[in-house]
Design a protein around this nucleic acid. Structure first.
Lengths: 207, 207, 207, 207
DNA sequence: AATGAATGAGCATTCATTCAT
DNA sequence: TATGAATGAATGCTCATTCAT
């Protein structure tokens, strides 16, 4: 008689695991071959399951892509919010955001590739799905910046929205270059480089 | 610089025109549906030619994508270099680059979409093809920055390469947001916003 | 008439019941969606059992279809024979057959649909399985008709086999039309209509 | 400039031919293996064309089935109407209908199989598509019968609709039996057998 | 050069059946 | 007996590319 006592736990674990396994496999495969060039069979093979099993956990190939995005974005944003809540100074918040951004993506190259390259390959995706996630992320940066303006640490003659985009764009470019680069270097330290410019500008004080 | 003067016969003009027509059609179609979701037949229909005719001008669907990139990048870079050659001050050069970047993409939405969204959807593309073009573009920015460092207008404690990426990333993000935004606004003025931050930083002088 | 009295043990009842339950579920599902469009999972769900359980009672999806046919045909023929045995006059026998035919199918719409529509969708089925059942049924009609010819109530210049087919075909068409009709009417009374023509012909006596 | 003059005719002919060829191939394949068991690849192979070519002429496998029905039904009904228009006496009309029915299907066994067996295998088909065609056919019989009632050659105490169904059902059963029979016999003569019963009934005059 | 009908490899998805629990 | 997660063969349909005209 199955499913009595902790066998349920076992089953649940298996299911959760398999979902996770498929997702990880998909990230690897998408990262390497691109979404459109990846076959469901590739994912299944990488996950060491039968093709059909994929469909017990995901409704379609497209849903896998979206799940990757949703899952990671949700996770990233909630982690970020938690960390930021404990920081008082707005400039320290911005600093932490930049660090987290590069740490997170820098620690999982495949995931980074999917985020930077694959997810953007779909206008549909960008339009329909990114909206929520990306907008929220940008908003977090913007809010932190506005806070800093109130606190007097950031210039008030700068549009907060534009400013958030500039920082995001700069960080994003670090990641993209890191991905495309044949060299293997640590992504995290670049946060400070970016912040140095972002905070202080490139012009000499005298200029 | 092609198509200057009367150097082309009628036939050659026709050929060149059709090549151009297909390229423009492809940009429109790719922009609207994405590279993988676009059918060669769609491009042919938009160009008002037969499907097979496409293959008289391009070897494959992929080649069309690459041609779009090559063509535009070459044009953009050569135009840019010419303009920059006439500018003395490094910070004015940087300024002009930022303006040109947003002017160019801001004046052709479809092209911008293909550049920002579609071209990136292909790791293969990014790796194999972007190299030349993007690298050259980034290098122009970097050179201008280094020039500025020598001239003493830019801080010397900043890595020029990173700096070029930051500027590029910031501009790039402006374009991406402009594309994804439902609002229709002018992209060009954002160059000054970006430069304000890039040049002066976001922190208050007193900070 | 099965399952009367207490003659069955609990277990046997359960088994018999489940077999029956699956069969009824299958009839409903096949009737609604057609054999090929019905999934074994649909049947299991309708029967409120697990997918795999179906295979404890039936070897395959196809076997379910055959079981429906066998079961119903056997039941119908044996019931029919019993009733006919008690009738003397051949024309009364024919009359009763027609009535039983429409009563039986008219009292179970789903079963009728499976018989009229689904079972015929399979050439293989028609060829391999219908033979026995249908042939026997047609033979019963034919025998009754020949009896009537001997008794002098039916014309002797008519081929008994053809005649049986005509009656069967006419009744069959009544059922098919009843199934396809959006109107809900009583099928049984049509037996008399058919018999009126079958017995008396459509021409006026004077003609 | 190609396809000027009669080359258009050539092309057209080819297209029409190929459409016809696919339809014939489909009838053969469907007749032999049943709709659901037939693969599009089977049809293509039988038609000696590539799989994809099927889709230049038909939108889907299902559309092929419908096309078979539509085409044949339209053809049959228009032919039938033409013939009947030239007949005065209602009973002769009924006679001709019966003959045409069996002649038509008797002359094309594969087509008959598809009509009798395959088309009916789909409740969806029967409901959605047969409506128009079958209803019209039954109506033709019914009209002829009513005409006969006015002319005084048919009994007035019989429901014309039921009567039409009886005749149709009887003929239909002849065809079905002919298809399922291992023996090869001529279907046409059975029209007279059916009519003998339909017109005169099976009872002896004295009864 | 231009056409567009034909090709056929390629792939996402379904579902009858199995089997470990 | 009962379960339902896992399997993987099977197939309808797409579309980049070719080629006879």
């Amino acid at each position: 008689m199955p499913r009595s006592g902790r066998s349920k736990t076992y089953t649940r674990n298996t299911i959760a695991d398999k979902y996770e396994i498929i997702l990880r496999a998909a990230i690897k495969v998408f990262a390497r071959k691109g979404y459109f060039n990846s076959k469901v069979a590739d994912i299944a093979k990488k996950a060491k399951i039968a093709d059909g099993t994929v469909y017990l956990y995901f409704k379609s190939k497209e849903e896998i892509l979206h799940s990757i995005f949703d899952r990671m974005m949700t996770e990233f944003i909630s982690e970020g919010k938690k960390e930021l809540a404990e920081i008082e100074e707005a400039d320290k918040k911005i600093e932490r955001i930049a660090q987290l951004h590069l740490e997170k993506l820098g620690s999982d190259r495949d995931l980074a590739v999917v985020f930077q390259v694959q997810l953007r390959g779909s206008t549909k995706f960008m339009r329909e799905f990114s909206a929520a996630g990306f907008a929220e992320y940008l908003d977090i940066i913007k809010k932190a910046f506005e806070e800093g303006q109130k606190q007097g640490v950031f210039r008030k003659d700068i549009n907060a929205t534009v400013c958030a985009k500039i920082l995001y764009g700069a960080l994003d470019e670090m990641v993209t270059n890191w991905i495309l680069s044949k060299k293997r270097y640590d992504l995290t330290p670049l946060a400070d480089e970016v912040l140095k410019v972002f905070f202080g500008g490139v012009k000499t004080k005298t200029a």
